[in-house]
Structure formats: structure tokens, C-alpha cells
Amino acid sequence: MHQNIADRLIDISSKIQNSCYQAQRAEDEIKLVAVSKLQSVEVIKEAYSLGINNFGENYAQELAEKSSTCPNNIIWHFIGPIQSNKTSLIAKHAQWVHSIDREKVAMKLNNALELEGKKIHALIQVNIDREESKSGIFPEETIDFANKVIAHYPNLILKGLMFMPQINASKKAKIETMNKIVHLHKSLLSELPSCTELSLGTSSDFEESIFNGSTILRIGESLLGKRS
């Protein structure tokens, strides 16, 4: 069993490389985001020293605290549910947001970004399996919502979609979900060619997600170790 970040990074990088080779994709199409929620600043700095430059946080206050003390060229991804009263913190400290899931959040984040004088790369979170316990818009609303974001919220640079498939689903159910995701993303791309990003892979399925077009992998404990 791997005991440190360096060894785990070698192992994960090898699996990414192998999956890209088999899927006939270029490795530089894949962005690895280290999910650093509840990890210490020391862990983040160690991972950064190994060449990891993209980190994902789930809580706005934690993002703000870490971005203020970590190297200033880290690219921060906000990947958790967005509370409308936390949009100012996200606007100030993140460069990417993966979890736009309703118009109220898009509006508040756009307004907060206006005050900051900046823009942010944004992904729409889709609740692909219509799970009551998860955030995200429904698949049939996705394209209309994407057009609305582009038309009305110019500080959100819409780049694509984010999904959180069921972790404990059967293999058959996971395949069906992946097929639905691929179809929806292709439909979006046919209308909005700039929405090329697909934030899909996690620790449990990142190899499979590469075969299904994922461009952003969100990997936490299997890379950075157990959370404190």
C-alpha cells in the first residue's frame, strides 16, 4: 500500500497515462484536480511541490483560508454545493467553479465577480440520475440553462458540465449513466462548441471516465491520503 503522496501520484499518473493510451486520447487533455477539502495546508504544499497545481475545495470558508496561505499560483476549483451567501468568497478565491446548479446562484456569483473585477471558469452541475440527495439541474434542462448562463451572466465563462454519478451503483447502472452523460455532453457541444470540459472522474471511476470523455478528474484521498 502506498504511504505517501509521491508514490500515490506516480500510481495515479500511470493509470491516467494507460487509460489515455487505450482511449486514444492525449494526456494533456486531462486535468487532475486534487480534492483537498479537510486536508492541511502542509499536505497541499507537499502535493504542489510534486507538480500538482489544481486543487478542489468544497467549503467556501476553507477555500478562502487556504488560498490566502498557499502558493499564489495554485488554481482553485470550487466543487461543492454553493450557498448563495458564500458567493463573494468563491468569487474572490476560486478560478473555477464546478457546481452551478440554479439561476439564483449564477446571478449572485456573477454579481460578486463584477465587484471583484474578474471572471471565472464555470461548469453546470447536472443531476444525471435525478437523485434527491444530490444537487444539480436535470438533464432535459441543461441546454436551455447553459444558454441562459451565457446570455445573462458574462462573468461566468461557461466551459462545460460536471457530474457526480452514484458511487455504489451496479456496473450496469454505471454504464447506463456514463452513456447518458456522453450523449448529453455531445448534445451540448453541438449547440455550444466552447463547452468542451467534462468534470466527471473521481477516485473510484477515473479510468472509466477517461474512456467516456472526461477532461477533469477530481481525486481526493487516494491521492492526498486520509483527511484530518
Results as ranks from 00 to 15, higher is better:
Q3A: 07
A6D: 14
R8G: 02
I12N: 00
I12H: 00
I12S: 00
I16Q: 00
I16T: 10
Q17S: 11
C20T: 14
Y21G: 08
Q24S: 14
Q24W: 10
Q24A: 13
R25Q: 02
A26P: 09
I30D: 09
I30R: 08
V33L: 07
V33M: 04
S36R: 06
K37A: 10
S40T: 15
S40M: 14
V41Q: 14
V41L: 14
S49E: 14
N58P: 03
A60W: 11
E62V: 02
T69D: 12
N72R: 15
I75G: 03
W76G: 01
H77S: 10
G80Q: 03
N85I: 12
I90V: 07
Q95Y: 15
Q95S: 15
D101K: 05
D101F: 01
V105E: 01
M107W: 08
L109Y: 00
E114V: 13
E116K: 07
K118W: 10
I120C: 07
A122K: 02
S133T: 14
S135H: 09
G136T: 13
V149E: 01
A151N: 12
Y153S: 01
N155K: 11
K159T: 07
L161V: 12
F163C: 04
P165E: 08
A169K: 12
A169C: 12
S170G: 14
A173F: 08
K174G: 09
I175R: 14
N179I: 15
I181G: 00
H183A: 13
L184I: 05
L184D: 02
K186S: 12
K186D: 15
L189E: 10
L189V: 15
S190R: 10
L192W: 03
L200P: 00
L200N: 05
S203W: 04
N212S: 13
G213S: 09
L217K: 05
I219N: 02
E221L: 02
L224F: 01
G225S: 04
G225C: 03
